[in-house]
Every structure is written in C-alpha cells, then in structure tokens.
Amino acid sequence: MRCLISAVLLVILAACSGPPEEVVRAPSEGITTTRSPASRELPPGRALVADYLLVDKSERLLVAYSRGEPIRAYRGLAFGDAPMGHKRFEGDERTPEGIYSIDLRNPNSRYHLSLRISYPNADDRAFAARYGRSAGGDIFIHGQPNGYPGPPLPGNWTDGCIALSNAEIEELWRLVPDGTPIEIRP
C-alpha cells in the first residue's frame, strides 16, 4: 500500500513540474540547447520558415505555422475601419476573409515593411463585377506608418490591411516566404 501511495505522489509531483523542456539540435553546427516550449526566441542554428498563416479577426490574432505546429503568434492586430465581414468592394475598409497567399514583399511601402495578400481572387472579382464595382486590392500585412515613432496605433486604422508592430512585422518578414498560404477567419 505504501508503494502505491508513493507512486501516486510521484506522478502528481511530476505533473505539477510544468512542461518538459524541448531539446533543440542543430547537427550541422554541433549545437544542442534546451528551451521551454513557450519560448518566443528562435533556437540557435535553426532557421524557422512559416508554411501557413492563420488570422482570426475576432481574436485579433495571427499565428504562423511550420509543418502543422505553431511557431509564432501575434496579438492585438489592427484591421480596416470596418472590420466585420468579408471585403467586397474597393473602399469598404474591410479586411478580406478566406484563403489567399502572400504574393509580394514590399520593403519600400508607406508602412514599415509589407507582405501583400493575394486578394482579390476570381470569386472576389466576380462578386464585385455583378454589382458593377471594383473588388479593390493592395491588401497587406504591414507595420506602422513610416516615420511614426510611437507604440502601435490603437484601434482599427487601416483601409483593410492587417497591421502589426514594427518589431512583429520584421520577425514575420523573416519567417514568411512568398507563396505562403494565409487563411483569414471572421
């Protein structure tokens, strides 16, 4: 009986100790390190590349994935002045919803770096055409306005883009290659 109680206590203590550390190895450089799974730091000697982006507009959350595992999360996103609903027309100040891809990198934009989202797709153009309107375009993930020295602007201030802090867009810029799929949910 005493052995059983001891075994149960050991299991409980092990469960309370928190998550195990992850061992990260970079064989080409002979580096072995440990880090907590919640660490936001890149492990040395290992370049991460995102192969999928998920944006949840209601949560103001962007998650970058690599091989099905989340590698970065960004909270507090800013959207267009009319964030609810899918972008339908040029000038509606909505952020699109659906599956697109990152199709262009612009290091010289009016904002601190920008990654273009492939909106509008054929369905978006067809919908707008039925109403005799333009679907719009030039929807980007970008940083703050160039020359703006303060913290990220509050609220929804873009014309339909997705805005991050300058530090966040710099990190995302390094992680995301052209052609990366992006899913934008309501």
Rank of each mutant, 00 (worst) to 15 (best):
K87M: 07
P44A: 13
S114Y: 00
P44M: 05
F79Y: 15
R88S: 10
F89Q: 00
L61H: 13
V55N: 01
S58L: 14
T33M: 08
G80Y: 01
P83L: 08
G30N: 11
E97N: 08
D81P: 00
L53W: 00
L113I: 05
F89C: 05
A64K: 00
G91R: 09
T95Q: 02
G18R: 10
P20M: 13
K87G: 00
A82N: 14
G98H: 03
S36C: 10
S114C: 03
T33F: 04
S66L: 06
F89I: 03
L53E: 00
A50Y: 02
E21G: 09
R75M: 13
L62Q: 01
E21V: 12
Y74H: 11
E21T: 14
T34P: 00
G68Y: 05
V55T: 05
E90L: 14
E93M: 12
S17A: 15
V63F: 08
P19S: 15
N108I: 03
A64Q: 02
E29R: 13
R25P: 00
G30K: 07
G45Q: 07
A82D: 11
L115Y: 01
L61F: 06
D56I: 05
R35M: 13
G30Q: 06
Y111M: 06
E97Y: 06
T33Y: 02
R40E: 11
F79Q: 02
D81G: 11
G85V: 07
E59N: 11
S58P: 06
I31E: 03
R35Y: 04
G85P: 05
G30P: 03
G98L: 07
P19Q: 15
